[in-house]
Design a protein around this nucleic acid. Sequence first.
DNA 1: GCCCAATGTTGACAGTGGAAACATGTCTTC
DNA 2: GAAGACATGTTTCCACTGTCAACATTGGGC
Lengths: 209, 209
Amino acid sequence: MNRSSRPGKRSAYHHGDLKSALRSAAATLMAERGVDTVSLREIAQMAGVSHTAAYRHYADKEAVMADLAEAGFRELSATMGQVIAATRGGVTRKLQAAGGAYVRFGVEQPHLLQLMFGPAISDWQCYPALVEASDALYATLTDIIKSGQEKGKFRAGDPRDLALAAWSLVHGLALLICGRRVTGSDDALFVEHASQRVTALLIEGLTVK
Amino acid sequence: MNRSSRPGKRSAYHHGDLKSALRSAAATLMAERGVDTVSLREIAQMAGVSHTAAYRHYADKEAVMADLAEAGFRELSATMGQVIAATRGGVTRKLQAAGGAYVRFGVEQPHLLQLMFGPAISDWQCYPALVEASDALYATLTDIIKSGQEKGKFRAGDPRDLALAAWSLVHGLALLICGRRVTGSDDALFVEHASQRVTALLIEGLTVK
DNA sequence: GCCCAATGTTGACAGTGGAAACATGTCTTC
DNA sequence: GAAGACATGTTTCCACTGTCAACATTGGGC
């Protein structure tokens, strides 16, 4: 939309692009201190606007968080896709690498993971884009399982079942680690090793002997 | 008011046993509507006392929630213990049954699970009893793994690693289901079957061939 | 019978999400 | 160009929240 007399640079409206400013402010605060402790007023203040300005761009606070969560899902899907593509070797290796990326994502951004899977967003039906992003993540996993089945590497059966097992495993592990429920959660090396050992066990069960 | 000159029974102070009244009120409200949406004032009202009475028994709102979470851990540990004892057959069967119990617990009490593993309690170090209850759950799982290893059923290695894998799996599955992230989450039969199929895959990887 | 500590109440305060009314800058249409 | 129309941001207000301080009540130990 070219709405300005100034070419080259987008002319500032009142603020410029407040929506993305709000989004990044929210992301920053949320990453630092968690979902519950960040207020809409603080987000607005960080973006340099009044505390109700956000309502011109979001229905309510939850909508802001849903936006963040959606971005999280897309980022995670993209990261896993890259890792799968970049990992050399068979599907088995690729799957394990993808699992490792999932856990790493969760450990590096624990608050974001909590937002994506926690109760902060009460009714997902209100955010179709969010549902779609979450489904895309599931699809990424299902695809690699399918690919492994076609190559005769993974056992037969509904790929969604196998994908659900893989998802559950890495998801649970990430949450347990970033919830400090297992000793050594702080140690990055421990995390890497634990995620490898744990995923190896499941892959053993997935693989055709 | 409940006058307290009842003989034979412990005389009620002002309220009787306000702490447990608060606890059960909090549990009821939390189970219905989730952690975030329940207020301390509402809990107090349900218990029939003034909105600050809780501060004579709990340091703050978080302490009430920590109490609930601890009870949740103890209940879950106990349930799994019973299921393990009641299930006939080898350790493999017992482990799978325990996993099913874990998932069922989470699906039946999603808000409680969110409280136990979510960000509602910010600093666990403040609640040693809670940490202990959580560790006891981990220990329950580790024990059955150990027992399986001693019988030569499960592969060798640090039992805590194998237990972590099992825990991650059922934990992740429970959260994904009660977060409605997989289709069919509402169907109890689906949940039962999914949890069986998923745990069977991991057990395949755990078992010695 | 009296005092004290434990327990419960009242009232206040700062902070929150959100609605309504108002202000302001930009775009479209003459 | 001038004049609405409209999107955007502000001010003001409200109900509600968690928490603190001061006050009231009551039962058990002396």
